[in-house]
Design a protein around this nucleic acid. Structure first.
Ligand code: ZN
Ligand code: ZN
Ligand code: ZN
Ligand code: ZN
Lengths: 129, 129
DNA sequence: TTACATAGTGTTATATTATAACATTTAAAT
DNA sequence: ATTTAAATGTTATAATATAACACTATGTAA
């Protein structure tokens, strides 16, 4: 098991506490009182946390959320639902979906080791507005 | 059918001719001889071209490729394979996959109008190296 | 323990990606 | 011809991310 370094722990904690995806410079702003002063300190921790699967990057939003599953540390297979109105992001944990995608083979013969899927739409709250 | 404006056409042409995904500032550099001088002129054309489905953004790479299918203008459903070694990107056109994903329903009850999927791995060329 | 290797930190500067704001022009619709 | 919407040109600036270098902590193995 991985034990996080000081900066990694600080930055993981703030992302984990947040209900929304956090952007790097918003994280930076929030951890400056803890002595983390420079973007690079944030990005280095983010890189590591992504690498070990504790957080994920929402590519379409340049933002980071804590992993809400248990298996992402090994699988590198991620799926999210994103509300285009309120920007709520949820990690999808669906074994049918992950099986389907993990077994998917391109006709080009490429074998995939990793995927990222982002669904967009309106969440329950926003659809009724 | 959409008829492209002058800048949109110039920028679409250069992306369409390219064998690789192109980045915005690389596009800018390449079209400066045609009178397009500022980033905003490029980004505005890119936005429109993405909106009408002539090009797609590869989110994990901040780069743009011409659509290689015919249906993306309506579907807003995109899937790509990305080689992590040579960075070759191919648009996946697979009806089983698109059916599966278009019909996918989250247990959260969210109805999706759009998705983007990026697979990562090694292409045929790179896997033998 | 000491040497070595690996990972993490701190700092400054800079590169890359993207948008705000405003004035003007072109094209399309009534 | 008048109005509206879309596109353009321009300057400035915001937001996101990395390069380079010096240093420190931690783990491993002789
Ligand atoms: Zn996860
Ligand atoms: Zn919502
Ligand atoms: Zn397409
Ligand atoms: Zn390759």
């Amino acid at each position: 098991m991985h034990t996080l370094s000081k900066n990694q722990q600080i930055i993981f904690d703030i992302i984990d506490k947040s209900r929304e995806p956090m952007k790097a410079y918003s994280i930076l702003f929030n951890v400056q009182k803890k002595g983390i002063k420079a973007p690079l300190q944030v990005y280095r921790a983010l890189d590591k946390l992504v690498e070990i699967g504790k957080i994920h990057k929402i590519e379409s939003r340049n933002a980071f959320i804590a992993c809400q599953n248990s298996s992402c540390q090994v699988s590198k297979a991620t799926a999210f639902s994103i509300c285009e109105s309120c920007e709520k992001v949820t990690e999808i944990n669906n074994s049918s979906l992950s099986k389907y995608l993990s077994n998917f083979k391109d006709k080009a013969g490429m074998k995939y080791s990793k995927y990222n899927l982002e669904f967009f739409g309106l969440c329950k709250k926003c659809i009724t507005k």
